[in-house]
């Protein structure tokens, strides 16, 4: 290779490596701030700030959704398998909201450890299947495997 071209190649490699290391370190330093929400285990461990606008995310524990008879008030437990947080909300829930599905709630954590949500977002998983297949899988008690960081709600055991 021509020495001038070789020099330019080294320059290009240097730019890419330098930028990767610099931005990589920045992202690593900010890694906690990159999370959109706190999982219930971090809230239970006291890592989430109280009375500040934050988001919490987890799976809606089956059998815990309680709706008020007169108004839109609803409360339910969200869990990540190791801890759970009680969420209070008043409003219309998204279509995909269901027991055993993931949600991200926006609101404030109270002193008592309950979460007062102003917004509830449904977080759908990465599985797509026709209704017949879903029924068959539910009948067989089969569940998909989760990603490294974000477990799908099927793999969580709700017994704890």
């Amino acid at each position: 290779m021509h020495p001038v071209r070789k020099q330019r190649l080294i320059f290009v490699v240097f730019v890419v490596v330098f930028a990767t290391v610099a931005i990589g370190l920045m992202v690593f330093a900010l890694r906690e701030n990159m999370n959109l929400f706190y999982p219930p285990s971090k809230i239970a461990a006291g890592e989430a700030p109280v009375d500040k606008s934050i988001r919490a995310g987890g799976c809606v524990m089956p059998g815990t959704v309680k709706r008020s008879g007169e108004n839109l008030d609803v409360n339910f437990l969200i869990t990540d398998g190791s801890a759970d947080v009680k969420v209070f909300y008043s409003g219309i829930l998204p279509d995909l909201f269901a027991e055993g599905e993931a949600v991200v709630v926006n609101g404030k954590l109270s002193e008592s450890g309950d979460f007062n949500a102003t917004e509830v977002l449904a977080k759908h998983d990465e599985n797509y299947m026709p209704p017949e297949v879903a029924d068959a899988m539910a009948a067989a008690g089969n569940a998909g495997d989760g990603a490294q960081h974000q477990k799908t709600c099927e793999v969580i055991s709700y017994d704890s």
Partner: peptide
């Protein structure tokens, strides 16, 4: 790679890769 791995590295509303 940050875009590609973002859903595995952090808690996001976007679901992981299908």
């Amino acid at each position: 790679p940050i875009i590609y791995k973002s859903v595995d590295w952090w808690f996001t509303l976007h679901q992981p890769a299908t």
